[in-house]
Amino acid sequence: MAVQNLSEVYGRTLVALGAENPNVVALEADLGKSTMSCLFEAAYPQRHFEMSIAEQNMASFAAGLALTGKIAFINSFAVFATGRAYDQIRTSIGIPGLNVTVVGTCAGLSDFGDGSTHQAIEDVAIMRAIPGMTVIEPCDGPEMAAAVRAAAAHPGPVYLRVHRADWPDVTPSDRAFVIGQPYVLRQGSDAVVFAAGAMVHRALEAAETLTGEGIALRVVNVPTLKPVKDADLRALTEGVRAIVTAEEHTINGGLGSVVCLALRGDGRPVECVAIQDVWGQSAASYGDLVGHYRLTAGDIAEAVRIALRKA
C-alpha cells in the first residue's frame, strides 16, 4: 500500500493536466513549495502566475483568466485561500460560476507548528456557504489525483481541501471518482461513520478496534462535502442503529452539519467527532493536536460506543 503526500500528488496531477490541456493555468501566492504548484511552474512557466502575497487579487485575477476560457487553479494555504479571498471567491468567481479551483493546502490542523492563524478549521463551512460551490476533500493519493481532474472538468467553482500529511492509499482500485458521491469503504451493520479526508484513515482504524469488541462499523468516505444528496447519505445508513461523523474541522458547518441535516427527523442517535468551537494552536507534532482536539481513532471508536448505547 503506497503512502503518498497529498500536496505532491496534487502538484504532479496538475502538471499532467497541463500537458493534456493548454488551457490549464495555475496561480500561486508565494507558497509554491508548500502547495506544490512549483511543479507546474517548472513545467509551464508561461501558464504559471506568481501572484505574490496578495490572495485577493489572485482570486479575482483567476476569474479574469477563466473569463478567457482558462481553467484556473489558485493556490495558497487553506486559511488564506478561503478566508483572505472570501469576498473575491464569492463575487468574482462564485456569482458568475466560473471554472476556478481554489486549492487550500495545509488544511485542518496539518500545519501543526504555525498555530491558529495557519490552521484552517472553518474553511469547509465558509466555502460550503457559497451557492454553487463544490467542496472536495480527498483522503489519499488516488482520490486526490482523480479529484484534481474532476475539478478541472467541472464547469463551476471548486474548493479542493488539501491535507499536508502523508496518507496510505485506501481508495479501491476500481473506484471511479464522481463529484457528489459518498461510498462505503468498509462494510459494517451496527453503526456507520461518515468521514472525510484524514479522518477516513482514523475511521478505518476505529472500525478495526471495534471489531474486537464485536461491533461492526461501516465506514463511509464522503470526499464531496458539497454537493451531496440527502437521499444518498440516508441510504448509506440503512440497517445501522447509530450514526457518527468524523471531520478535522469545526463542528459548525462541515460534515457533521451535512449529515445531521440529511438525517433530520431520523430518530437514531448521531455523534459528531469534530473540533469544537475553539481555535487551533501550535504543537510539536501533528499527533499532539489530533489528540488534544479529540480527533483520534480512539475518539471515533468512543463516539460509536456512545451512540450505540443511546440506540
Partner: peptide, 25 residues
C-alpha cells in the same frame, strides 16, 4: 457584461486576468 462587479476593488484584478488570458491566446 464581462464580469460581475459591485464589491469594490475586484474589477481591476479581473481585468488583469482577462488581459493575461488574452495575451496567452
Amino acid at each position: 457584461i464581462e464580469a460581475n462587479t459591485g464589491s469594490l476593488g475586484h474589477g481591476l484584478s479581473i481585468a488583469c486576468g482577462i488581459a493575461a488570458g488574452l495575451r496567452l491566446d
